[in-house]
Design a protein around this nucleic acid. Structure first.
Lengths: 192, 192
DNA sequence: GTAGAATCGGAATCAATATTCCGTTTGAAG
DNA sequence: CTTCAAACGGAATATTGATTCCGATTCTAC
């Protein structure tokens, strides 16, 4: 039987950590997370063995949401837009909270097994959407995953670290997407 | 009169720091820099008050080189290619050493006065090249600096943190550049 | 209502590094 | 060749922040 206060506190810690890590990334302090959760640090540690574990739990949850979104977009069967929407979705997520790319960057080297799985799933989801889009001619046929991943990482990191306003992100993505489209004319950029 | 050994050591420290910081970014340890320079930590500190100061000295030098390059490209009077070459140049530099974007990122907030000046210069150099390119129709007229900066930052960060092979970077930039070109047909991507 | 186990809070501990200090060494000038 | 100020090396110190520990406080079950 899980004690009710334990469950409550765990939730409070997760919520606080999501906010604090989202604002400050990996450099956030455990004290701060505990303080904002209204519990002692000891409690944070009873629920999550290390800062990294806490961090992983949150990133993992967010990636799952993105994966759901990818599946939904694919099921919607609009191959012309699915890929682009998902791409924009990921970037928007990065802009909102600074945790995703942080993980890729600083961790980078020592990805935990669990996360490695998610990473693969993410890659596959993106590859599927890309393939669909290319099949219907919405994305030029000569681009491949490596450059897509590089572009996505770059866009996410830029969105995450800079303090770009929404319109700038939209215009940036518009340029990027135009580069991915087949010879067709450019979309007009959204106004700044 | 500057003692000869002092001058020599200063140079050794700078050289070592360029390598170590280039490999490990801001997380590199002062011990390590001292060790590789073949001097004691005390010596490092006699020449550079803090790690940040040492870091700043190196970044500053690199930015100066890039600024020179921008001026050279502009003087070469090939407005069709100057902008793109410079963009690629910056990204290549980021890929080689992980210091530039680090500074923009983590510092981000507290940019030193000196560096603020360089940042302005960088922005102006880029704006000049962009204007030239747009005048001759090499870059679509509806893009503006904010999105250019976002793209450059993103590309640099991706190049810096990922372990992309040269060809992938080339292909990524090719996509990106195609998005910046006017309606004209895409360039064929460089082979992977 | 009470006992016992689980959970709490947060002070104390530990670890990792930047930075300082000072006795020792070295270069420059006379 | 001396002298002495400047520079050196690297041990000692200071700081920052994660993690551990344990007495005090809840829960839950009976």
């Amino acid at each position: 039987m899980i004690r009710s206060d334990a469950a409550r506190n765990r939730a409070k810690v997760l919520a606080a950590a999501e906010i604090v890590l989202g604002e400050q990334g990996l450099t956030a302090r455990m004290d701060e997370i505990a303080r904002r959760a209204g519990v002692g640090v000891g409690t944070v540690y009873r629920h999550f063995a290390t800062k990294e574990a806490l961090y992983a739990a949150i990133v993992s949850a967010r990636v799952d949401l993105l994966l759901d979104e990818a599946a939904r977009l694919r099921a919607a069967a609009e191959p012309q837009t699915g890929f682009f929407r998902f791409f924009a979705q990921v970037v928007a997520d990065a802009a909102r909270k600074k945790t995703l790319t942080d993980a890729l960057r600083s961790a980078g080297i020592d990805v935990k097994a669990e996360q490695a799985g998610q990473r693969t799933q993410m890659r596959e989801a993106l590859a599927d959407l890309l393939r669909d889009a290319q099949r219907v001619g919405a994305v030029r046929p000569d681009v491949d995953m490596p450059e897509i991943l590089a572009l996505l990482r770059g866009a996410s990191m830029a969105a995450e670290t800079g303090d770009y306003s929404g319109p700038v992100i939209d215009r940036t993505l518009a340029v990027l997407f135009d580069g991915l489209r087949p010879l067709a004319a450019h979309e007009p950029l959204p106004s700044a």
